[in-house]
Design a protein around this nucleic acid. Structure first.
Lengths: 219, 219
DNA sequence: AAATAAATTTAGACAAATCTAAAAAATAAT
DNA sequence: ATTATTTTTTAGATTTGTCTAAATTTATTT
């Protein structure tokens, strides 16, 4: 299926939001993409016509199987390019996202498969996210960044990727350590910050930055 | 200067056509880009407003210095990606053009400079065309593909890149050999074929395909 | 040099992707 | 169970890049 750059961006974003919630709603997608809710509705109609979306007016939407497959192709391209930028060009993993965002729209399957082979068919990208293979299959990670964890689901802290003294100090302060029980109570879309509950301590708020660096797995 | 993908395509095409003729005209650019002449006029107005073009209504146009610099940046990206596709991903040089055409619009200077370093700052792309450096400078090649040679300018055949028996047979037939005097009398934009004069032989027509593989230099 | 042909530009229309403001529907609150 | 609030959709406008058809300008013929 031939998709415009814009359609691809919507599909990818819906896919990403679906990781956290069953059904996606207009406002959260508008917020995520920095567009108006009206634009979202417009695009939803198009994607529904293209049969990539389950969408009932006023009641939210989600990708159907075809939509999911398209999303996985886009994500595969994105993550392979990120891997390339970090491992071959020596860019820092915090800085490659925007460039991969552009490269991902170049959609020649031959290019992507050759790139995949050249990179040694990596399974995980520099941010710790899995890279779909040519069939769209992704390895199941027990471990995920806390920022990608669903709301209100218990987890155990498995690792911390940015082990600076400042980071460790903060974790200490909140009583977060490897093995801690953790649960997200609320996610603020505005800045990615999270209200969390650690073991039996009182609730606390951590930044989106911190939430990218704390990894957890199922309880 | 921030340019749209479309603007970039026009600028690059004008640059390429300028290699062969002093002033470019509406119809030849329309033909080159497979659009209508009316679309060309529309875009010329925009590029003139952006001060990238010298353009006098009805009398043709050409890039000014700013336009040339933009063109060189786009061409640098295009040729570096072609080099990457051939030398790193193992694609064939006849097949990389379309993909490079898409990749060239990703315009992060940091990306391109890191790619350049990674590739070893190549000076010539897989088609034998020079790659502009970060300042837009290109090495002066005495040797150029015949297809890029200006009309009615004497040249000497310096080499032939596709030395298949079929190719050699044809060259033989026309009396084309290394060292032959050669001159283009007319170029057919439709298929890239050329009417040429070799030494004192009668005129003949060669295909665009052949014209890509015959290299010449100044007399 | 007047008529014809070719090239170029203008006028007006259209699709894609976006917006703002207003209307409609669903949810929450009293 | 009404009312108020929030969310979502519609209506109508805008920008970019494109088109066709008609008008204009330049070039070519006779």
């Amino acid at each position: 299926m031939k998709l415009s750059e814009s359609e691809e961006n919507y599909i990818k974003s819906i896919y990403n939001l679906q990781e956290k919630t069953e059904k996606v709603n207009t406002n959260s997608l508008a917020n995520f993409l920095n567009t108006s809710p009206a634009s979202i509705t417009d695009m939803l109609k198009k994607l529904k016509i293209k049969k990539l979306l389950e969408y009932k007016k006023y009641y939210g939407f989600r990708l159907n199987e075809a939509g999911n497959n398209e999303a996985l192709k886009i994500i595969r391209r994105h993550r392979l390019w990120e891997y390339f930028l970090v491992t071959k060009l020596g860019m820092e993993w915090e800085k490659v996202h925007d460039i991969a965002e552009e490269l991902e729209h170049v959609s020649s399957p031959d290019l992507i498969n050759k790139l995949d082979i050249y990179l040694g068919k990596p399974k995980i990208d520099p941010h710790g996210d899995p890279i779909p293979d040519e069939k769209g299959k992704i390895i199941e990670l027990k471990q995920k960044a806390l920022k990608n964890w669903p709301l209100k689901r218990n987890a155990i802290v498995s690792s911390v990727s940015n082990q600076t003294p400042e980071m460790m100090e903060m974790l200490n302060h909140y009583g977060i350590a490897i093995g801690s029980q953790i649960k997200i109570l609320k996610a603020f879309e505005f800045d990615g910050s999270l209200q969390i509950k650690i073991a039996r301590n009182p609730d606390c708020i951590i930044s989106g930055q911190a939430a990218k660096n704390i990894f957890v797995y199922d309880n």
